[in-house]
Design a protein around this nucleic acid. Structure first.
Lengths: 168, 168
DNA sequence: CGCAACTGGATGATGCGTCAACCAATGGCT
DNA sequence: AGCCATTGGTTGACGCATCATCCAGTTGCG
């Protein structure tokens, strides 16, 4: 990580990175702010709630939820704790693994997500999707595909390294 | 904000949004984590420091800095406070407007950014730029251009509304 | 069986980001 | 000159994200 034969960015790269950086910051804060104002739910709340909404009995194992939203476990745990005190979610014991936890949407939680979904979609359209041509939509899909693939690969390497370390 | 004749997302839009969302979250946390591990600087630190590095005498008025990084003023103030106690930056009085503040890079701050720049560029290449074709780079630039233009427009409307309110 | 390693998850400390309130300096208007 | 609205910036409170640590239940291996 220390040795860098890194060439500087070309103007083209510079523009792309700079644009992405600016967009990323402003867009996510705008979406977050708007959702919060419209519905009282943060982006994070919404991610959790809609994952639960999409699950069989509106209940999901902690681990499954973690895979779904890709958060660190302590973040998830803290956030679920807060959401529980707000009455959006309940924690229950897990039958097949008694150290595990299962989280379920409360009626209030369900109502909240359902109410929020429309606003969220509208905002995403307003500030992103409706601004792009079909080609740009596809380009965005491909770009994120490439980046996510790279990140996943990295992750796999980490696992492999852990495997090796265990073998020693 | 409440009435939504919003149609649901098409599959194409769905893929684009979902991809962007996932990429955004993982990419920024990866870049942040890596920069922090390599250099002890957060993404936020780096943004401030490189803005200062690019300024005339490595000094910038608070307001100018705010335009540069596009943060809320209280965020900037808090962060600069912390950076000052870490010795990366100094706050000085402003001559032409005595309620203003000027911030300057300390030698340590300068050294820190300069050391960090290479790592940052390398990481951005590894996880984003090197994964994309030239066309994708341009697409990214256009996409962010469109989004930023929309956000700016919104901003202008807000200003105009404020103007109107003043006129009443 | 019994012990060690691992795993799902919780917790506490700490730094960050946002909001609202605040303060003093400034500039415009009469 | 005098007043009021505005602006540049700070502060405090509060919720969120991360790290390290911890704990109990589980699994694998001898």
């Amino acid at each position: 990580m220390a040795t860098n034969g890194t060439r500087p960015l070309t103007p083209r790269e510079e523009r792309a990175w700079d644009g992405y950086r600016r967009m990323q910051g402003l867009l996510s804060s705008q979406l977050n702010r708007q959702l919060m104002a419209d519905t009282g739910l943060s982006d994070a709340d919404f991610a959790i709630l809609s994952a639960l909404l999409g699950a069989p009995r509106h209940r999901l194992r902690g681990l499954a939820l973690r895979c779904e939203v890709q958060w660190e476990k302590s973040r998830l745990s803290h956030h679920l704790g807060r959401m529980q005190t707000r009455g959006l979610v309940v924690r229950e014991e897990c039958v097949e693994d008694s150290r595990g936890a299962v989280f379920q949407l409360t009626p209030e939680g369900k109502a909240a997500v359902e109410a929020a979904t429309g606003d969220r979609v509208a905002a995403v359209r307003t500030y992103l999707l409706d601004l792009l041509t079909p080609e740009q939509l596809d380009a965005l899909t491909e770009i994120s595909g490439a980046v996510l693939a790279r990140l996943a690969e990295d992750d796999a390497h980490l696992r492999a390294a852990a495997e090796l370390a265990r073998a020693v």
